[in-house]
Design a protein around this nucleic acid. Structure first.
Length: 434
DNA sequence: TCTGGGGTCCTAGGACCC
DNA sequence: TCTGGGGTCCTAGGACCC
C-alpha cells in the first residue's frame, strides 16, 4: 500500500507561512521573469486564473479583486520542502521524494488504522511547518495519486466527492461499489499519465472517466497508444507497474535555461548568459559526481512576438568527458559562435549537459594530448574551491570572467520584482518579531 | 512592454551490420 | 514476373510530469 502526500498550492502555502496576512486572499506565485502563474491559492483559482496564465493578462485582477502576485522564491520552497519531507517520511518505512511538494511513502504492513495515522502526520506537518497537505492511499502509485486528487477535490470543490474523503482518502479500504463510484466521478484527464493530448483522444473514443479507463483492455491501450498507457490501465486495476524508487538516481541530463529580462541582440550578451548557464549546470554536475560527454546550447527568439523568428541548437561532443566549468564553457561558447545569427531579438537561451557518466569512469583516448586539462589535479582543486566559495558566500561570488560582472547592467538578467526574503536560508531574511 | 524551467520515458525511422 | 531477414544503435520528436 502506498501513500502520496502532497502540499496544497505548495508555493503559495510557503509564502503564507511568513506572510499570514496573505491568508484568505487570492495569491499567485509567478514563474522566473515574473512571466506566468505557477501556483495559485484556492481564492486565486476561484477567480478563474489558470495554471500558467501569463501575468500581463491577469494583472488587472490586482485592482479588481485584490490579487497578490509574488516572484518565485525557490530557495525558500526548497527549504520548506525538506522539512515537510522529513515529517512525511514518518508515515511509513520507505519514502520516494517525487517532486518538491510530493512524496510517496510505502505503508505496507504498517499496523493500525492508516487513515487515523495519516491524519496525525498531516496535522503534524501543518503544525510544524505551516503547510496544509492532502494524503491519498492506494495499492499502486497511480491509485495513490488518484486518491490524493480525490482528497483535494473533496475538500475544495464541495459535491465533487463525498465530503469524508477530504484531506485523506484511502482507496484500499473502499468496498468495490464505493471504489467504482469514486472512479466514475473522476474525469479521465485527472488520471496520472493522461495529459491533454491523450485525454482528448480517449474522450473521442468514448472513454470519459477513470472507471472507463480502468475497464479498458490493456492490450488495446498499448496498441492504440503506448506501453505507458497500458501501465496506467494496469495500475488502475491495482497491478503495480511503476517502481518505487527510494534513492534519488543520478540525473541523465542537467540543464540551465532562462528567458531573458529584456530581448538580447548582441553576441557579447549571449556569451555572458551562456557562461553563467554552464557554470550553474556544471555545479550541479559536480554535486552528483558526474561528468558530461556532450554540451548542447540553444538560443531562440520569442515565439509570442510578431517578428523575425530564429531558433537553433547544436551539440558539442567533448573529446573527453569533463565537469570543469571552463572546459565546458569553452565548448559551449564555440557552439554559440556557430549558431548565433546577427539581427534577431533573442528571448531565451540555455545549456544542457548530456551523456552524463560517473566520475569514476574514465575513457582513455588513443591520442593523448600532453596538455590535456582533464583530470589535472589543480583544475579539480580549483573547481572544488569555486563550489565551496559560492556555496558559502552565495551564488556568483566567484565566476568565470566571460560571465561578465554583476555590477554592469545585464540585459539578459531575469526580472524578479516581487520576491520575498530568504526567511529560512539567509540571515538578512530572518523575520523580526516586535 | 509583458507568456517558466527542469526533467523522464517511449517510439519511429534511419544508418548500419552480417 | 521475380529483388532477404534479422538485428542493434542512435537520434529527433512527442507526450507526460511537477
Amino acid at each position: 500500500m502506498l501513500a502520496l502526500i502532497d502540499g496544497n498550492n505548495f508555493y503559495v502555502s510557503c509564502e503564507r507561512i511568513f506572510r499570514p496576512d496573505l491568508r484568505g486572499l487570492p495569491v499567485v506565485v509567478l514563474s522566473n521573469n515574473d512571466g506566468c502563474a505557477i501556483a495559485r491559492s484556492d481564492e486565486a483559482k476561484a477567480l478563474g486564473i489558470k495554471m500558467g496564465a501569463p501575468w500581463f493578462k491577469i494583472q488587472d485582477l490586482q485592482e479588481e479583486a485584490g490579487l497578490v502576485a509574488l516572484s518565485a522564491n525557490f530557495e525558500l520552497y526548497g527549504d520548506i520542502s525538506d522539512r515537510m519531507m522529513s515529517l512525511a517520511a514518518g508515515l511509513g518505512h520507505r519514502q520516494e521524494i517525487y517532486s518538491i511538494d510530493e512524496s510517496f511513502v510505502d505503508v505496507t504492513g504498517i499496523p493500525g488504522d492508516l487513515v487515523e495515522r495519516s491524519r496525525k502526520i498531516r496535522a503534524r506537518i501543518l503544525q510544524w511547518t505551516g503547510i496544509p497537505s492532502c494524503i491519498g492511499m492506494g495499492p499502486t502509485k497511480t491509485l495513490a495519486k488518484l486518491a490524493n486528487a480525490i482528497a483535494k477535490s473533496a475538500e475544495r470543490k464541495p459535491g465533487s466527492y463525498p465530503a469524508h474523503h477530504g484531506q485523506i482518502c484511502h482507496l484500499g479500504v473502499q468496498s468495490p461499489q464505493e471504489l467504482e463510484d469514486l472512479l466514475q466521478a473522476t474525469e479521465v484527464g485527472e488520471v496520472w499519465g493522461v495529459g491533454r493530448k491523450i485525454g482528448a483522444q480517449l474522450r473521442e473514443g468514448g472513454i470519459h472517466t477513470a472507471l472507463d479507463l480502468q475497464r479498458m483492455d490493456p492490450a488495446a491501450a498499448k496498441s492504440g497508444w503506448s506501453v505507458v498507457l497500458e501501465k496506467t490501465v494496469r495500475e488502475l486495476n491495482g497491478v503495480p507497474c511503476i517502481a518505487f524508487d527510494e534513492a534519488p538516481r543520478d540525473k541523465q541530463q542537467i540543464a540551465s535555461t532562462r528567458s531573458f529580462g529584456h530581448a538580447v541582440t548582441e553576441l557579447r550578451d549571449l556569451e555572458e548568459a551562456i557562461t553563467e548557464f554552464v557554470c550553474r549546470a556544471a555545479e550541479k554536475l559536480r554535486r552528483q559526481n558526474s561528468q558530461a560527454g556532450q554540451v548542447l546550447v540553444f538560443i531562440r527568439t520569442s515565439p509570442f512576438r510578431k517578428e523575425a523568428q530564429y531558433s537553433k541548437s547544436a551539440v558539442f561532443p567533448l573529446q573527453a568527458p569533463s565537469n570543469d566549468s571552463s572546459s565546458l564553457t569553452e565548448a559551449a561558447l564555440a557552439v554559440l559562435h556557430v549558431i548565433y545569427k546577427r539581427g534577431f531579438k533573442y528571448a531565451k537561451a540555455g545549456v544542457m549537459l548530456m551523456d552524463l557518466q560517473p566520475l569514476s569512469r574514465h575513457q582513455f583516448t588513443l591520442d593523448l594530448e600532453p596538455d590535456e586539462p582533464i583530470n589535472n589535479p589543480n583544475r579539480i582543486r580549483l573547481m572544488h574551491a569555486l563550489d565551496n566559495v559560492n556555496g558559502r558566500y552565495g551564488r556568483g561570488t566567484l565566476n568565470l570572467a566571460s560571465a561578465g560582472t554583476a555590477g554592469e547592467h545585464r540585459l539578459w538578467q531575469m526580472k524578479q520584482q516581487r520576491k520575498t526574503p530568504g526567511y529560512t536560508t539567509r540571515w538578512e531574511g530572518l523575520a523580526e518579531v516586535r
